[in-house]
Computed example of a mutant assay.
Amino acid sequence: MTKDFYQAVKDRRSNYQITKNKILSEEKVQELVEFAVKHTPYAFNATSGRVVVLFNEEHDKLWELTKDQLRKIVPEDDFPNTEARINAFKAGYGTVLFFEDQSVVEGLQEQMPIFSDNFPVWSEQASGMLQYVVWTSLEEAGLAANLQHYNPLIDEDVKKHWNTPDNWKLRAQMPFGKPKEAPADKEFAPLDDRIKVFK
């Protein structure tokens, strides 16, 4: 499926109705993630973004680990709703994990102390751009996704099970799959309240 840029941006939405039906190969998903990691901009070309892509049983394992951690902190009476939500993420066939390499951030802070306070901020901004590029690319390819933030709750489990380095800080999780249905219509705040133009 090919869309123009505007249409892909418009259609990129949080979609929680995903399935394991593979309409895009794992190799193609890897290709679009690699493209995003390579071409997403970073302040001072820091390239601190790191990504782990989980498919199939590895994807399922992530959401089972998440469920196990949530079971420890969610009241028992409330847990069925929490479990249903996690199972909706698990219903997809893959998850993209986004990290920021803190050794890169700290190295830049040491090299350019005048900008020291800004490098963690710029790192987060770049991570957001990377997440957006991957998400929009998945949408353009016909997949549905949503963005989750179960960090730091699952950080140690992720590090243990996928052997991620200590300096990789988990920032977000993006489950994806074939869309089961389109998301509901979205409401927009008036642009006049959000944009100022001076000529």
Rank of each mutant, 00 (worst) to 15 (best):
G128D: 00
S103M: 06
G107S: 10
G142M: 06
G94T: 03
A144T: 00
S127L: 11
F115P: 00
F119C: 08
S116G: 12
A144C: 04
V121W: 08
L143S: 04
G94C: 06
P152G: 09
E139S: 09
V121K: 14
E106L: 12
N151P: 00
Q111N: 10
W122N: 11
W122T: 03
T136N: 13
I154C: 04
G107M: 07
Q111L: 14
V133N: 15
D117V: 07
Q111C: 01
F115Q: 12
L143G: 04
G142W: 05
Q125W: 06
H149M: 06
Q109D: 03
T95C: 08
Q125D: 02
Q102F: 04
E100N: 15
E140S: 15
Q111I: 01
N151Q: 10
A144R: 01
N118H: 05
Y150I: 02
D117S: 14
V104N: 09
T95N: 11
L108F: 15
V105M: 11
V105L: 12
S137R: 12
N146I: 06
Y132Q: 14
E106C: 00
P152N: 00
E139K: 15
G107P: 04
W135C: 12
F99L: 11
F115W: 11
V133F: 07
L138Y: 05
F99K: 13
A144M: 02
Y150P: 01
M129F: 10
E140M: 10
F115I: 07
M129E: 03
L147E: 02
A145D: 08
V96F: 03
N151S: 10
L108N: 08
F98H: 04
V105R: 13
E124T: 08
N151M: 08
N118M: 11
Y150T: 03
P152R: 01
H149K: 09
E106T: 15
S127C: 14
M129R: 13
V96N: 06
D101N: 15
S137V: 01
G94S: 08
T95E: 07
E110Y: 01
A144H: 04
A126Y: 05
P152F: 00
E140P: 01
E106V: 11
F98K: 03
I154S: 02
T136E: 13
Y132N: 10
S116Q: 13
W135N: 05
G142N: 05
E124F: 12
F99W: 09
E124A: 15
D101W: 11
Q131V: 03
N151G: 07
S103D: 15
T95G: 12
D155K: 08
S116W: 01
L108A: 12
L130W: 07
E110D: 10
L138E: 02
Q125S: 05
L138G: 03
V104P: 08
L108I: 06
E100C: 13
I114M: 14
L108S: 11
N151V: 01
V133T: 15
M112K: 11
D101T: 12
G128R: 04
F98V: 09
V134D: 10
Q148T: 00
A144S: 14
S137F: 02
F98R: 02
F98P: 01
E139W: 00
W122S: 12
P113C: 07
Y132T: 14
